[in-house]
Each structure stands twice: as C-alpha cells, then as structure tokens.
C-alpha cells in the first residue's frame, strides 16, 4: 500500500510533536488505520476542562481520501452530529476539499479550532446551530452541562 510509509511517518512526526492539547495513540499496535486521540477542550471555550476522546479512522485509500473523525465522548456542538457516531465533517474533512498532502496533524488543529469557534453556517445540528447564533447563553449553559456530564 502506497500510504503505509506516509502513515508511519505521520504517526512518528505527530508523536514527536503533538498539537497542543492532544494525545495520540494506536489502540491496536499493528493497526495504523485507527488512531485514538484525547483532546482537551480549548481553555478559552465552553469546553474548557473537558477531555474528549476522538477516533480518527483512515480509509484504505488514505491519503487520497480524507480521514473520518468522530467524537467518542458526547459533545454539545453544532458541527458534531448528536448521535452514536458523533461525526464531524467540514473543511478539509470533506472529500472535495481534502488534498492528499494534507496531514492528520492539520486535521486535529482544525478540530480544536472548531471547538474554540463553532461554525454554525456549516452545521450538522441545525437546532444547536440556531441556539448558538440566537441564544448564546442557553447554548453555553447546555454545552458546559454536557462537558461536566460526559467529558470529565
């Protein structure tokens, strides 16, 4: 597989130099396609103090197709689907925007940036997005409640 050398290099690089607030592991030592990420909520956001588990699954066509990112810890966020998959799909995570030179480290930076600044125009949860836009206080309260309920 063409991607193997690349993935190994990416994993080594990310271990040596992980993005802020992220710890990356391989749940199964010999399975390079499934990464597990622990991400701290950005300190200046409603998710501060929360610790989120994410799964990053690389398709077999990687890096010609983008990785799949899903939150394993429930999170109240307009860009994360509020179901058992907890998937996030925006920006470079979309097949038509992903470019093969893009790296997972950039993906993780994007995810963290979106935690700090949700993108309601690109929402998967329109209800939460509306609340975020129009009733910020209620949104903040709900998001924080979920953090203490699920992400501690």
């Amino acid at each position: 597989m063409a991607g193997n050398k690349r993935i190994m290099k990416e994993f080594a690089d990310i271990q040596a130099n992980s993005p802020p607030g992220c710890t990356i592991t391989l749940p199964k030592e010999d399975d390079l396609l499934n990464w597990e990420v622990t991400m701290d909520g950005p300190s200046d956001s409603v998710y501060a103090g929360g610790r989120f588990k994410l799964a990053v699954a690389l398709p077999k066509e990687y890096p010609f197709k983008p990785p799949n990112v899903s939150f394993k810890t429930k999170i109240y966020h307009p860009n994360v689907s509020n179901d058992e998959r907890g998937s996030m799909c925006l920006g470079m995570l979309r097949a038509d925007e992903w470019k093969p030179p893009n790296k997972i480290v950039e993906v993780l930076k994007l995810v963290r940036a979106v935690l700090a600044a949700p993108q309601p125009e690109d929402a998967v949860e329109p209800g939460i997005a509306n609340e975020y836009k129009n009733e910020r206080r209620a949104f903040d309260k709900n998001a924080k409640e979920w953090v203490s309920k699920y992400a501690k």
Binding site: A2, E61, F64, K65, A95, D96, K99, P100, P101, N102
Partner: peptide, 25 residues
Amino acid sequence: DCYRQYLVQKIKGEGEAARIKCPGD
C-alpha cells in the same frame, strides 16, 4: 504514482472530470 492515484480517486471514486484541481494543498 501519487498523481495518478489521485486522478483515479477523483475520476473513479468521485466521478469528477472537468474540474479536477491540482493535488497541491
């Protein structure tokens, strides 16, 4: 090889043809 595989993914996988962009970031 990578350039080709990129095109295969776009053409076969995503059905793109007329507006395939450079694979560069």
